[in-house]
Design a protein around this nucleic acid. Sequence first.
DNA 1: AACTCGGGGAC
DNA 2: GTCCCAGAGTT
Length: 347
Amino acid sequence: MKTFADHLLTWFDLHGRHDLPWQQPATPYRVWVSEIMLQQTQVATVIPYYTRFMQSYPDIARLAAAPVDEVLHHWSGLGYYARCRNLHKTAVTVCEQYGGEFPQRFDDVVALPGIGRSTAGAILALSRGERHAILDGNVKRVLARYHAIEGWPGRTAVAAALWDKAEQHTPESRVADYTQAIMDLGATLCTRSRPRCGDCPLGTECQAYASDSQADYPGRKPKQRRPQKATVMLLALHGNAVYLERRPPSGIWGGLWSLPEVTSAAEVDDWLQTRLNVRAKTVEPWPVLRHSFSHYDLDIQPLTVRLSDVSRTVADLPGAWYPLDQPLNVGLAAPVSKLLAQLTITH
DNA sequence: AACTCGGGGAC
DNA sequence: GTCCCAGAGTT
């Protein structure tokens, strides 16, 4: 009697992905970085970031030694920036507490910041072949269909049922291949829309396929309306430089550099006076830029502000002036990058 | 249990 | 436009 894993492994040898950048070699460090980048992020999006990251930080010691701002610069545009700060924090921890060798015990791995149950399992399974289950978006979809598990996986009971199945199916041998195999199946064949069930090694053992109800699994998240928010971003110009401030570590775009914000155009003069101790020579509005997050829409009103005189600017500014003609070696929020790029063009 | 955290690919 | 992606941390 061939098991779930047997079918999957046979299929994987022929049709799985064997040439992803983090598979050669699949060291704990390289797998770890890939797993963090791949959290809620598609493979095609990650690959160029991963390649650049590995060129700059070929080992964990180099990552730990780098300034967090420089690491965030490599992450800029990838989203979920807490992942990056936790990555750097973990690199420092591993170098200081584990002598630069990634820990091998599951409890030690899952205790590291940014590494949860699934990511810890993936690291140990993929890089060391240890028997641990994973439960990412691919595995959830495959197992929800195979066992016809109803309900949204975000619900605790549904997630628990899926974890149960994930543990049960994980084989004793070839764990690394199996882990890659079930992800590959979900990514290339058991896709969210139009799954290619005719080519699936699981065949009619899949309960969803057997009842032609693939589209019902996994259950959808109950949908909610996105709130609308608005802000005003100031492109405060002093000669060839623009004024940027670092955002607080928590909250949206945490730790990134961004344009200063006010709640309305009427507050611009006030802000310039209190923060920079200057007045505006000209204020020029740009077209509103809509930036959509998964949980709200943000309408950004950019204002170009030319300053009358910056010689009296207060000494201990919370931000800094960045020359527009030089590359910015810091993390920038995506819409801020867009605005600065346009600003550079129009100059 | 619900909320927060990004940006983009696929449709 | 919607949905969701190799999820985790906070409240």
